[in-house]
Design a protein around this nucleic acid. Structure first.
Lengths: 231, 231
DNA sequence: AATGATTTTTAGTTAAGGCTAAAAATGAGT
DNA sequence: ACTCATTTTTAGCCTTAACTAAAAATCATT
């Protein structure tokens, strides 16, 4: 059973890995948990001793299977609570993070599963992030989602367009998007719904896509799933 | 802002005071929080420094107004969460204590008040204990409750009988109960619904009352309220 | 390949909150 | 009022998880 602090480190490692870094540096991790690199270094030793991470001195950490499982469970609880706070208590989606940050550490399988059922087994939280299921893996997203409604941090593949007009298709050409293009949503801007997207096949290029483009693209989960997250 | 541990001590002091002890001994408190008297003694020094308790060495602790306010807020959160777990997540009333014990430490006024509203501003939790309102005081109980449905730890006064047959009134005489008798529910036995009751005017005598008696007595809150809890 | 900058780890403190064992204060019974 | 049992406090130690400052390893550049 990890302490609250250990849970926060594990979760942070998962998130950094989700953003594309295979191995996580001590400094990046320290930044994420708002601690000094020295404190982080000490914590990594403990996490390694528990078998939750593999840490090669001076070369970065990675979650083990058991560490990833713990982290996914924390993310599951966090996103379920956020859904509860927004859908049932009437919070705005940008007010719930800090409270969910506390609720996520209450580790009761019974509680989590009952909450999940109460919410109707949601697939996405109020921020559009995928909610892991009771098995610690993301539930599969419905086939063919609009890019504008797809979860973040999941590798997607472009499978169709809503609007076949020449002008749109030419625009896609300019952006370097075609059927089969593999991409991942990094960030969703609340202001206008535009997305920051990373392209897997163009050197991990990051680009901003306007709402009008996102609403006209059908995407699906990439069948050749990436290591983390595995859907 | 108290730590989780400090909150547990404050809550324990409140509960012991509720059970009738004006001043709480270090040993009783230690028992309640499952710590040693030594650890408890150290904690009392800290609580005193924060102004949450008054502690006279070797003579017991009492909550200050600010300490009592903190403790009542914890009890409020505990009982609201218990209500949520039972009424909305389908837990049994005897499974929720430990989980509520964790949830109660999430101290967000916004969260607590929204939860309260979501639940419909309940007056009693699933165990029949009164739920403090947002002002840190118990909400007043509806005038004239059946003793069988009254909350625990609240000083009540007998104001009427449901059943005026001689046999019942004679039985009340034997038990020493009449109009105006002041009593407090100590414990409710789930098995058969019988109550353990303390009588204020007969030397704090404790007696067991059968369900058939409790269902035939109207009670009200004692107007000359006791110090804790004040309804 | 060497040097300088950066990153990471180690060493040594600190603060909470727990523990045991010993000392001190209280109180009960003669 | 004195003694003995009980209660409470003090003293000293442990663990967790933070911190700063210093040492060590890696990396980048020439």
């Amino acid at each position: 059973m990890p302490t609250v602090s250990a849970e926060n480190y594990l979760k942070a490692i998962l998130h950094i890995q989700e953003e594309g870094q295979e191995k996580v540096s001590t400094t990046d991790l320290a930044d994420r948990v708002s601690a000094t690199p020295a404190s982080t270094s000490a914590m990594l030793k403990k996490l390694g001793a528990k078998g939750w991470v593999v840490h090669e001195r001076y070369h970065g950490v990675q979650l083990t299977d058991s560490g990833q499982r713990i982290a996914m469970d924390i993310v599951r609880r966090h996103r379920l609570w956020e859904s509860f706070l927004v859908d049932h208590l009437g919070f705005d989606w940008d007010q719930v993070h800090d409270i969910a940050e506390e609720l996520e550490h209450i580790n009761s399988v019974e509680l989590t599963n009952r909450l999940d059922a109460f919410l109707g087994f949601p697939k996405l939280d109020p921020h559009g992030d995928a909610i892991p299921g009771p098995n610690g893996r993301f539930r599969s997203v419905a086939a063919r989602t609009l890019l504008s409604e797809a979860p973040r941090h999941l590798e997607l593949i472009v499978v169709g367009v809503v609007d076949g007009r020449d002008a749109f298709l030419r625009h896609l050409g300019v952006l370097g998007i075609s059927l089969g293009t593999r991409l991942t949503v990094i960030r969703r801007h609340a202001f206008d719904g535009s997305l920051e997207v990373r392209f897997a096949d163009s050197g991990e290029d990051v680009q901003m896509l306007s709402p009008s483009v996102c609403e006209r693209l059908w995407v699906d989960q990439d069948a050749e799933a990436p290591s983390i997250p595995f859907p």
